[in-house]
Nucleic acid binder design. Structure first.
Length: 730
DNA sequence: CAGCGTACTTAGCACGTACTTT
DNA sequence: AAAGTACGTGCTAAGTACGCTG
């Protein structure tokens, strides 16, 4: 049917045209055949969106409170400020920036000293007997080319190595390197004639050897590594010791792009010191470059926070060596991030009111702006900047295309697209009516698959609008805000009762709501299905056992069935087949156990040089098991389990009770496992949930923080742990 | 403004290790 | 004690954001 064809809301003035490549840019993707996303995960069960207008945030004065540093105690901060560059005790890592004066501005540091970076070890040629085979014959590769071939050889059994794009990119770069170093005497032309299996086997062997090293060897190696890394692990920032994050230059290898990345498999080249730029304080000692080398450049830029940088050859972008997450610099910016997000609560009401109005704007650009804001706010979409043809085809809000949404009147929208990291975003939701109408307009006639839905706006345009409401407000802040707000709301729903373990489970459930909001996924572990199957089997067996015990009760006192029919109404829940299957499993397991025990005993005897036991020794056991088997068979026929003489109804009821408990805990565990199998909690805990919420929960609910934050997270969020109390609110 | 360069946050995966279970 | 599983961390890819330039 023709809904609202005459609705005047649908008439939008198209004021400004997007200049250069309005449609051209859109349709370049159109040609692309939409391959089934490789990482496509099973769509989640449909969700209903939270309604847009449920903000409880009070409409408060618009003057943004400048983020106050989270002062544990607002004490002698002036004092701290006075004694700035003192160089007597540069060793304390316990600097509490959150107790000092805040530092806002362009300049990021006063002095910076560090020892440079660690380079990966030189390539060591393979032993002479390990070769690449071409056309069935071993090839003598120059070491530069051998290294590259080895990269592929080591990955032979991975999914990457089966990917044609990966193969092609690798092969092209391999041939290039081979050419650069003068060839190998044999004309290598076809990838399919290359045989890496000998190389693979060699690497497997090395792995095996490494695994089989004795404990002491491993320990020694680890200690050596520690000692070597020691100087690089820390640096001096304003005279204070701080941890460095990634102090190693990335080793060469084959680029492992995520999703359908056009450049996956390309050679990531070795980074020479000559292409590394160091950033140090003026007058700081310049670390020695590796012997025979020079640093590319030395800078003294105190407006940035990186210690070293190099250009990478895949996307031609920069890689940085930075401070660790627990450093004061990162901590401060993390704190600022959460304060900005928190500040959004003072503006969100107005923002929502405005975009709701603008959804009906006469100006197309405004309508797109309002609609995009709605999607970012309600569904936590990312901004969605433009991407090139040489990157994986993934999208966010502003880069959504025609084919990414399906409209189902009256107001249902199905999102289906690949987001960051080629993670599938699939949601069937109901949206505001005007949003629905707008989306329909954005898909209207000349538009076709491949075209941008939002063809008149960009993330920077959006962000510029956001700044009008609040300093520092950008699209990504909405994700942080909504994530933390959701967490606060979820925590508010948790009753303060039960054991610590129970409270942790509740906390994780709240955490999970946030992770789902942000679409944080993980691949289900390889072993997931089997382990679920195992738990299910266990569960079935428990249920069978329970039913069986109830049947026994009825055998003892048949009239109980009438008295309490509910208690006995599950008696026919298991089919004969299921029952037989369970019998089989039990029998097999018992036999297996008997044999295993025999083996164990024999090993012991062997060690003591005693005569071994033969299989006859467990004959008796096996006979007993066979008896049981027959008993079960009979039981299956009659439906009446055999009863021990000493049994009473009371005892049976007691046993049933125990089993019922086990069933409920196991069921719960199973559900938890399933619910969590493809949701990743870590990302939201680390990046989106204001850590002060977690600390507040810990204190208010009396759950040790160790149960909520790992050691690294405790270090990263030390500022929150030391400055938050039980009644803190986001 | 587009388009690029730069700098910073966010993200999942691989792998080693710690912890449980059998 | 071995095997299986869950957890924690390191690694590095993939985003966002923003200023500058022509």
């Amino acid at each position: 049917m023709d809904i609202d064809e005459d609705d005047e809301d649908d008439i939008v003035i198209t004021k400004r045209k997007r200049t250069s490549n309005g449609t051209a840019a859109g349709s370049k993707r159109a040609k692309k055949v939409k391959e089934e996303p490789k990482s496509a995960r099973v769509p989640k069960t449909p969700k209903t969106p939270k309604s847009a207008a449920v903000s409880k945030a009070p409409k408060t004065p618009k003057t943004p409170k400048t983020p106050k540093t989270p002062k544990a105690a607002k004490t002698p901060s002036d004092k701290v400020k006075e004694e700035t560059p003192k160089e007597e005790t540069p060793d304390d890592m316990g600097y509490k920036w959150w107790e000092a004066e805040e530092n806002d501005g362009e300049q990021k540091w006063e002095t910076l000293d560090h020892n440079g970076v660690i380079f990966p070890p030189e390539y060591e040629p393979l032993p002479l007997h390990v070769k690449l085979f071409y056309n069935g014959k071993p090839v003598n590769l120059p070491k530069e080319a051998e290294e590259v071939a080895g990269f592929f050889g080591a990955m032979l059994e991975t999914e990457h190595a089966k990917n044609p794009v990966f193969q092609a990119n690798f092969f092209a770069d391999f041939l290039q390197v081979l050419k650069e170093c003068g060839g190998c005497g044999v004309e290598i032309k076809e990838f399919s004639k290359c045989d890496f299996t000998k190389m693979y086997a060699h690497f497997e062997l090395l792995r095996e050897e490494k695994k089989n090293m004795t404990k002491d060897e491993k320990k020694r190696l680890k200690a050596e590594k520690e000692a070597f890394e020691e100087p690089y692990k820390t640096c001096l920032l304003n005279g204070r010791k701080e941890l460095v994050g990634n102090f190693r230059i990335e080793p060469p290898g084959l680029f492992r792009g995520r999703g359908a990345h056009p450049k996956t498999g390309k050679l990531k080249r070795r980074v020479p010191p000559e292409s590394v730029t160091l950033n140090l304080g003026q007058g700081a000692k310049i670390p020695d470059p590796p012997p025979g080398h020079q640093w590319g450049e030395i800078r003294h830029d105190n407006t940035v926070t990186w210690l070293a940088m190099w250009k990478e050859n895949i996307a031609d972008s920069f890689k940085y060596v930075r401070f660790a997450a627990s450093s004061s610099i990162k901590g401060q910016s993390d704190f600022k991030k959460f304060e900005t997000a928190r500040n959004l609560r003072n503006h969100i009401e107005e923002i929502r009111k405005d975009y709701t109005k603008l959804l009906k704007s006469d100006i197309m650009q405004n309508r797109q702006m309002a609609t995009a804001t709605y999607l970012i706010d309600i569904f936590a979409l990312r901004a969605g900047g433009e991407k090139g043809d040489d990157e994986a085809d993934t999208v966010g809000c502003c880069s959504l295309r025609y084919e990414h949404i399906t409209l189902k009147p009256p107001n249902k929208v199905i999102f289906d697209f690949l987001g960051k990291d080629s993670i599938r975003f699939y949601q069937e939701v109901e949206v505001d009516h005007q949003v629905f109408k707008n989306l329909r307009i954005f898909k209207k006639d000349p538009k076709q698959p491949g075209d941008d839905l939002f063809d008149r706006i960009t993330p920077s345009l959006l962000n510029r609008q956001f700044q009008n409401y609040m300093k520092g407000l950008t699209a990504k802040v909405f994700r942080t805000y909504n994530a933390s707000k959701t967490m606060q709301d979820q925590i508010d729903l948790i009753p303060n009762e039960g054991t610590v373990a129970e409270k942790v489970v509740k906390f994780n459930a709240a955490n999970r709501t946030v992770a789902i909001l942000c679409n944080h996924q993980r691949t289900v572990s390889r072993t997931h299905n089997t382990s679920v199957q195992k738990i299910n089997d266990k569960l079935k067996e428990l249920i069978w056992n329970k039913i069986r015990l109830k049947k026994m009760i009825l055998e003892l006192e048949p009239k109980l069935k009438k008295k309490d029919p509910k208690y006995f109404n599950e008696l026919d829940d298991l089919s004969k087949e299921d029952e037989a299957h369970i019998h089989k499993i039990i029998i097999e397991r018992q036999k297996e156990q008997a044999f295993k025990k025999l083996q164990r005993d024999n090993e012991k005897l062997k060690a003591e040089k005693m005569p071994l036991l033969s299989e006859d020794s467990i004959k008796e056991k096996l006979e007993k098991i066979d008896e049981l088997k027959e008993e079960y068979a009979l039981e299956l026929k009659t439906g009446k389990p055999e009863i021990k003489k000493s049994t009473t109804v009371e005892k049976l009821k007691q046993q049933i009770e125990t089993i019922a408990n086990r069933i409920s805990t196991t069921t719960f565990q199973l559900k938890d496992k399933e619910d969590n199998s493809e949701v990743s909690l870590g990302t939201s805990k680390m990046n989106y949930i204001d850590p002060r919420l977690t600390v507040m929960f810990s204190k208010k609910f009396d759950v040790p923080i160790e149960k909520l934050f790992t050691k690294t997270l405790r270090e990263k969020f030390k500022w929150a742990i030391e400055s938050t109390d039980a009644d803190w609110r986001f």
